[in-house]
């Protein structure tokens, strides 16, 4: 209220019918900015709606055609077709996260709280560079360098830890397995998780860090008491962004994996479940008619998977809201 009266006071000292005292004068800058902000928000929503609309309309024929007809045309039922790929997508991303998240948080903490300042900034720079490498390059590296290099390790895992379901089966001779694809994915999502968590860790209030130190916390205890709890929501968001990238990553996976429509826990064999994105990329060029619709329905499935994963993450974050430190 006060700001309204103040702003009018300096502009219109005497109230006239055209300029009633209580009407705030709109400033050009305000108007332009609020227009821009609203416009951007609406644009994002529009694009999202258009993509979702496209997916729904184009996927509809594949979903609506009777199973018998699909069978007759040699496409197989949609659900039994998509399920192995959906599994492959989620499973490969799961392993990627399992490897990337602890490493990324470790690096982020090292940069924010352990490394001397000079080392910290150059390390941060290197990590950001990693994010700039195109995924094709990661794919090439994964299939030509990484796969042969880790293959002996896979043999070892299979021989000595083969009783664990993940490592059982006939190990691949080329090393181009789901685990290799997951390692490549892990490397690809490492930078985004690292740099976002580092930003969050750096913003931990000094006040709370000093509170922990003054109680006689060691540096690691201080991190556990003040830094990690403060950064929880930020860590979850960064992991979700990383996961989003892993779920949708196409080239790297397509180049490393020779996928098969199987659902398996084994990650060292040459019979690997493919991912949805890779399947779409590999099959789209030759697809026509109903096959195209089927692939787009696959895209819709991926969209839904990502949406569900994100919602779960938001749910987790909001459950801790009361203790988030935002109040």
């Amino acid at each position: 209220m006060t700001s309204v009266t103040q702003s009018t006071r300096e502009v219109t000292p005497t109230p006239t019918p055209e300029h009633p005292v209580n009407k705030a004068r709109e400033r050009i800058g305000d108007r332009v900015f609020s227009g821009l902000a609203t416009g951007s928000g609406v644009t994002i929503l529009l694009i999202l709606a258009m993509v979702a609309g496209f997916l729904l309309v184009q996927a509809f024929p594949a979903l609506a055609t009777s199973p018998a007809e699909l069978e007759a045309k040699g496409y197989g039922q949609f659900w039994s077709w998509i399920l192995p790929f959906a599994w492959g997508t989620v499973y490969a991303s799961f392993w990627a996260l399992l490897m990337a998240v602890p490493v990324a948080i470790g690096i982020a903490l090292f940069i924010s709280h352990y490394a001397p300042r000079r080392l910290a900034s150059s390390l941060g720079y290197v990590i950001d560079l990693l994010a700039a490498v195109p995924s094709v390059v990661f794919g090439l590296w994964g299939s030509m360098v990484l796969a042969p290099a880790v293959q002996p390790l896979y043999l070892w895992l299979n021989t000595y830890l083969g009783w664990i379901p993940f490592f059982s089966g006939q190990p691949s001779g080329t090393g181009r397995t789901l685990l290799t694809a997951s390692i490549v994915l892990a490397v690809m999502i490492l930078p985004i998780i690292t740099s976002l968590s580092r930003e969050v860790f750096l913003q931990t209030p000094v006040l709370h860090q000093e509170a922990a130190l003054a109680l006689g916390a060691t540096r690691w205890e201080m991190i556990k008491m003040a830094v990690l709890p403060f950064g929880r929501a930020g860590i979850v968001s960064s992991v979700m962004l990383g996961l989003g990238r892993a779920l949708g990553e196409t080239m790297a996976v397509a180049m490393v994996l020779s996928g098969a429509p199987v659902i398996t826990l084994e990650i060292l064999t040459s019979q690997n479940p493919n991912t949805i994105a890779a399947v779409i990329a590999q099959n789209f060029p030759e697809a026509y008619g109903l096959k195209t619709n089927q692939l787009i329905a696959g895209g819709l499935t991926l969209f839904v998977i990502t949406l569900v994963v994100n919602s779960i993450a938001r749910l987790i974050v909001s459950r801790y809201k009361e203790f988030s430190g935002a109040n």
């Binding site: 209030p205 006040l207 709370h208 000093e210 509170a211 922990a212 130190l213 003054a214 109680l215 006689g216 008491m225 003040a226 709890p229 403060f230 929880r232 801790y320 203790f323 988030s324 430190g325 109040n327």
Partner: peptide
């Protein structure tokens, strides 16, 4: 620091901890 306690100018309870956990933190 475990023998010499400190209270700061601005109150700084750990926002992510309950009242009970705050008291018992040290």
């Amino acid at each position: 620091r475990r023998q010499v306690g400190m209270v700061f100018q601005r109150p700084n309870p750990f926002p992510t901890m309950s009242i009970k956990d705050n008291v018992l933190a040290g």
